[in-house]
């Protein structure tokens, strides 16, 4: 690598060259050209993405301006669906829950994942520890759903455990009432997704040059200084991935809520995606459901743009 740097320096300082050399050099600077071949590299990705995205987004946008329901032909009604959604009594609950899920996901899996990734990277047996935290992510949804349902249900394992250690007073119907059902589901979701965060941060931590770490350790830095001054800055790019992805996913929380509580009781634990699903899929109100979907999408895009712009200020790309 150092040879190459020397080489490039040598090449840059040589200004008076025979013309044929200069021409040869220009031919070699193939990468500098932003020609068609540059775009060739991301054409496969673009094609796949557009092939899948264009029609669904377009259709959803279109339907959101209609009263499409069930098998009936859609009739254009302009912004009616959006207006109805803004005065829908469920709006407050559903937005509150989305906020709760987003904050909880940022605090719990991301924070805990970071700590685990850092601590695990520096100890023996890191592979085993990482595997332990990854196992929940590997399990199929049916297993995870059945498992946590059986843990939290009234006749379930958590209550049995509480009774066995003499804490009968704490026995509760964890899934049947709000807000404990949301808290229970957040616990299950944290369990399932922290492993992912651990792996992502591990990928970032690996980039920290070993010499830097060794030098700092020899200088007497303890773990805290090591983390804050050396590791944390290096995690800049991975951090953006973790936070960006967590935000996008938590705003769209659906599966765990739908499976464990169906958004209940009395629709108290519904998130935006659940509300959308309920209207579109359960009640077949495709027009209204599409409007909620568009609303959700705009929210996710806005939050993503804000968070990514903030996190990568130095990056000229955005």
């Amino acid at each position: 690598m150092s040879n190459k740097v020397e080489q490039s320096n040598r090449l840059r300082t040589k200004s008076s060259q025979p013309i044929w050399l200069k021409l040869k050099r220009n031919n070699k600077n193939q990468m500098r050209k932003t020609g068609a071949s540059t775009y060739f590299f991301f054409i496969p990705a673009i094609i796949c993405v557009l092939a899948i995205l264009v029609y669904p987004i377009g259709k959803t946008l279109y339907l959101s301006f209609t009263d499409s329901e069930g098998l009936l032909p859609p009739v254009f009604i302009g912004l009616q669906n959006y207006q109805n959604f803004l005065v829908d009594p469920i709006l407050r609950a559903t937005l509150t829950n989305v906020l709760i899920w987003t904050v909880a996901t940022l605090v719990l899996p991301v924070f805990i994942g970071l700590i685990i990734a850092t601590v695990v990277s520096g100890v023996k047996g890191s592979a085993i520890y990482r595997m332990i935290f990854l196992l929940p992510y590997v399990l199929s949804g049916v297993a995870v759903g059945a498992l946590w349902f059986n843990i939290f249900e009234t006749e379930g394992l958590l209550n049995k455990f509480l009774v066995s250690i003499g804490l009968e007073g704490f026995v509760n119907s964890w899934l049947l009432y709000y807000p404990q059902n949301t808290i229970s589901m957040i616990i299950a979701a944290t369990w399932a997704s922290t492993g992912l965060v651990v792996v992502l941060f591990t990928v970032g931590i690996q980039n920290v040059p070993l010499q830097t770490v060794e030098a700092a350790t020899i200088d007497g830095a303890n773990s805290w200084v090591l983390f804050w001054k050396i590791i944390w800055p290096q995690l800049k790019y991975i951090r953006a991935v973790v936070i960006g992805t967590s935000l996008a996913n938590s705003l769209r929380t659906f599966d765990i809520v739908w499976v464990m509580t169906g958004g209940g009781p009395a629709r108290n634990s519904e998130t935006l995606a659940v509300t959308m699903y309920r209207e579109a899929f359960l009640l077949n109100r495709y027009g209204y459901g599409s409007a909620i979907a568009v609303f959700l999408m705009v929210l996710v895009v806005a939050v993503s743009v804000l968070s990514l712009r903030g996190g990568l200020k130095k990056e000229a790309t955005l």
Partner: peptide, 20 residues
């Protein structure tokens, strides 16, 4: 009608749990 039944069972569930 389906939306009445689907909405109805949500209210009935809340009643059964004592939330309403």
């Amino acid at each position: 009608p389906v939306p009445l039944i689907e909405g109805g069972v949500v209210i009935l569930s809340a009643f059964m749990l004592g939330t309403k």
